[in-house]
């Protein structure tokens, strides 16, 4: 067990190294560099001045020296300066990360609130009208692209019905920290969270439904019934205990999907989080911000997957092959 955890953790190190190398080389491949993007709007800067600036910033060193600097600083939490925002990347991200975390946790919570009961109902009463309805809904959730669905939600609820705000994360006229402030935040969150969660239910519902249907037919469940255990207890004690545990472990695997989702959701609902910042920075060629964002997202996904693997191996010993 301990061996598995240790080995799984060690695999992370080369993964993170390769990730950082890929991102660094990608950033190098992007057109222009830190100097050109910071002086883009200033026609008075001469090529000589730009060259001097490059020398000073170390941009003329060989790539591996630069890579070493970048990784060394990044480990200490220093991702350099944003050129369009004229402030350290770290503080820029700090101002936004809360919103994205709020959005992502919101989506996760709502997803499970919807998916777990529906999955259990569909699995327990297979082929009932409720099951058919849930399967149909799940099929829509699988097939619908997130950005199309979010746009339609925005159009319907914000523009036609006017129930929810059109964009942003909070009404700026409200005083920070007041009760109204929190209400306003929640109001702004509802639509993006619902849009994300309604589609994200797919995997959990399908997993739960299939797993319950499989477990229902296992001999140990039949034995429990034969002993006279009441039907509701068969489910709570015997079936659900087995089927629900792995769901907790899938959390870490969701991170990759959440990152991609937050890009679309934040763009559509003009929600000031990391996803929106990413798109703005790519458009503004603000490479230090872009690399920092990809690096952080990648690290989150790698760590999340590792945690999921480990939790899953504790929950389900069959996975622990070494």
């Amino acid at each position: 067990m301990l061996k598995f955890i240790l080995r799984r953790t060690l695999i992370m190190i080369p993964q993170l190294l390769v990730l950082s190398l890929i991102i660094f080389l990608l950033a190098k491949a992007m057109p222009g560099d830190a100097v050109t993007s910071s002086f883009m709007s200033n026609p008075n800067v001469t090529p000589e001045q730009m060259e001097k600036m490059r020398e000073k910033l170390g941009l003329n060193d060989s790539w591996y020296v630069q890579y070493g600097h970048w990784v060394g600083n990044a480990v200490q939490g220093d991702f350099g300066q944003s050129f369009t925002h004229k402030q350290p990347v770290t503080s820029l991200l700090a101002g936004r990360v809360g919103n994205t975390l709020l959005l992502s946790t919101g989506i996760l919570i709502v997803t499970y609130i919807i998916a777990i009961p529906l999955g259990i109902i569909a699995g327990r009463w297979t082929d009932s009208w409720a099951d058919k309805l849930i399967v149909t809904y799940n099929y829509f959730a699988f097939a619908t692209p997130l950005f199309v669905f979010s746009l339609l939600m925005l159009f319907l609820f914000s523009f036609i019905l006017g129930w929810t705000p059109i964009g942003g994360s909070v009404d700026i006229r409200i005083e920070t920290g007041s009760f109204d402030y929190i209400v306003s935040k929640v109001k702004h969150l509802i639509l993006p969270v619902m849009s994300g969660a309604l589609l994200a239910t797919f995997g959990t519902i399908q997993y739960l439904r299939n797993d319950i249907i499989d477990t229902k037919l296992k001999d140990f469940v039949k034995t429990a019934r034969a002993k006279g255990v009441p039907e509701s207890k068969v489910y709570t004690r015997h079936i659900l205990r087995n089927s629900l545990l792995p769901i907790a472990a899938f959390l870490g695997y969701e991170i990759t999907g959440l990152i991609a989702g937050s890009i679309f959701l934040e763009m559509i609902f003009s929600y000031p989080g990391l996803g929106q910042l990413f798109i703005q920075s790519v458009m503004g060629r603000d490479f230090t911000v872009v690399t920092a964002l990809v690096m952080i997202s990648g690290t989150a996904a790698i760590v999340g997957t590792m945690l999921s693997d480990i939790i899953l191996s504790i929950v389900d010993p069959r996975i622990r092959i070494d």
Binding site: I11, Q15, V18, L19, I22, L26, A27, A29, M30, P31, T256, I259, A260, I263, F278, I279, V282, R285, V290, L293, V294, S297, G298, A301, I302, T305
Partner: peptide, 24 residues
């Protein structure tokens, strides 16, 4: 499989976007 495991956790949407803007 080690390589694929790694590729699968990459934030691919972000990387695709960076590729799209960097291809000359």
């Amino acid at each position: 499989m080690r390589i694929i495991d790694f590729l699968m956790v990459l934030p691919s949407l972000m990387i695709i976007i960076i590729f799209v803007v960097s291809v000359p």
